[in-house]
Design a binder for these strands. Structure first.
Lengths: 67, 67
DNA sequence: AATGGATGTACAGTTTACTTTACATTTATA
DNA sequence: TATAAATGTAAAGTAAACTGTACATCCATT
């Protein structure tokens, strides 16, 4: 699962630390999620997407397994 | 965080067990998520919403904290 | 080149999602 | 009413998200 967090963060010109405070987690969690090291909780994914005034699907990119 | 899993499951006429197999988790996990006892991972939330041909935002309902 | 701000890595510890098993209760159906 | 299928509950164990701390590296600015 990929995401556009880094890109959106640059656009909005906020640091990992600022984002972490806005969504109420540690900077480590932001790093790990941003780099795809882990699969955030739905609540956190929602809070992150709201920090960018976006929907979850706009921020996180799911590979469409098959079709 | 609320969700429409039970409702969508009834509509689609599938049991908790069937849904759990479709999305690859235990039935216990489905029960706990369905009843709001826990906050699923984003990946699982995505898989559940796909099982209903829906988006995450259509299945899970986030309280808009403030505005 | 030095200083500082942002990012990355590593690791031990805590919390919680998730599993497995087992049994009890509800609900539908013969 | 009996029977089975679906749902609920409980509890112990595992895996992984998330924390906190500490230090290293990357980049910009002076």
């Amino acid at each position: 699962m990929k995401n556009r967090i880094r890109e959106l963060r640059k656009l909005k010109k906020i640091t990992q630390e600022e984002l972490s405070k806005q969504v109420g987690v540690s900077r480590q969690s932001i790093i790990a999620i941003e780099s795809g090291k882990f699969n955030p909780s739905l609540e956190l994914a929602y809070n992150i997407s709201k920090a960018f005034n976006s929907t979850i699907e706009e921020v996180f990119i799911f590979e469409e397994g098959s079709m």
